[in-house]
Design a protein around this nucleic acid. Structure first.
Lengths: 222, 222
DNA sequence: TATCCCGGTTTGGTATCCCAAACAAGGCCG
DNA sequence: CGGCCTTGTTTGGGATACCAAACCGGGATA
């Protein structure tokens, strides 16, 4: 693979895993030594990441895109019509095998699994469901939304019950798709998005102090 | 403005206006002489345009993204839930002044206006409506969708009646928002998207010969 | 002591250079 | 005569060189 793509992927991973702090400045020279490549591929990777809004310009400088917790509401508002549409289409179009494959990945994530695993599966679920819709625009839009959500979800304090709750909701959505009940699936999907948003916001609100202590500027959180 | 952004904007314009044919190869050296800049900013512009899917890689080469007329259905399917949501939100959130501003741009486009004007206003309308929703994710998604539609709409043979029809539908959507009737606005918006898609597909189907004559590969058109 | 100014340093923006791989054309061999 | 290989050219990928602007810090000054 080209060096630029390697750098892009690594940098992306570092950003999404909060290895690089939101708002942190990135100098091309630092990245140059960090990745042992010249500025050319680094620059390309940065431009690419800028398109994904994971990196942003601040004047002439590059910075890791800050997390704006205020956009969590807008994000849910955006996801609801898309995901309800996605599950409706999935009812009409998904094959039993596709559904079974998603069921398997859900089952593979047991209570004991590491947090990274839960995080990834919880995100991928929505993208995979979107894929069942067969509509590439919906898939890309949801994938983008989940990416934007991803870092905020790392900030959340995950309790066992809330984790189980989300898992059950995923399971229910999938069940309604399997049962070919588009209305119920859509209702369940919308509720799930709302619930998840509320859980996330509640957790962040309760943990404001903890967030600040960990050095996160809690911006946009009402 | 930086040279890279100038190149990006110009190239983007050339692509969207079909000045550069879909599928046409772009060599960095040609762009270098065309824009009288070095390869560095040109490559950055290309990477950026790749993110907008206006340019694509074909092996090691850069090409102008082909038009896939087969995605027109998926595009409508994607837009309907988003735009119905947008108009609903607009009913709740838009100020009279915002609505009036859009009305004005509609009125400013009279029958005698050049085709470019109609094209632009017809595209911008949807983005402006989305903006009334106050949700930046919806705005960006719809803007992206309209960009993807843009080139296909240039291929359409525009008749005076169909142009008037679209204008009336825009007017009606706006009217329902103004009247604060979200259900009617949503229904109208969905119908408009469906109608527009059908008009476009019908026109392209009837004009297959013309398209081929103009050198367009009619791919993905059922 | 607070402020302003100035020069040195760092940074991103651009131009060039080098390279390996892809490509195309021409010639060689079967 | 046709297919294959060779070789010269073109292309994109990466590295480096150079520049102007932004930034920073220290010293002079009010």
């Amino acid at each position: 693979m080209s060096q630029m793509l390697q750098i892009h992927d690594q940098l992306r991973e570092m950003i999404l895993s909060l290895d690089l702090g939101p708002g942190e400045r990135l100098t091309e020279r630092w990245l140059e030594s960090r990745f042992e490549g010249s500025r050319t591929p680094i620059r390309a990777a940065l431009v690419r990441l800028e398109g994904e809004e994971l990196v942003r310009r601040d004047g002439r400088n590059w910075i890791v895109a800050p997390i704006d917790l205020g956009e969590l509401e807008a994000l849910a508002e955006f996801r609801i019509p898309l995901e309800t549409t996605a599950v409706r289409l999935a009812c009409a179009r998904a094959s039993a095998a596709d559904i079974a494959a998603i069921e398997e990945t859900l089952d593979a994530c047991q209570s004991g699994a590491p947090r990274e695993e839960w995080h990834r599966v919880g995100t991928d679920f929505h993208v995979e469901i979107a894929r069942l819709s067969g509509n590439p625009f919906i898939v890309k839009a949801i994938a983008g939304a989940m990416t934007r959500l991803s870092r905020a979800r790392w900030l959340e304090v995950w309790t066992e019950p809330s984790r189980e709750q989300a898992w059950r909701e995923h399971r229910r959505i999938l069940g309604f798709i399997k049962a070919n009940d588009p209305d119920a699936a859509a209702r369940e999907a919308a509720d799930h998005i709302t619930d998840t948003r509320d859980r996330l916001l509640r957790s962040l609100n309760e943990d404001r102090r903890g967030l600040r202590a960990r050095g996160f500027a809690v911006i946009g959180l009402r």
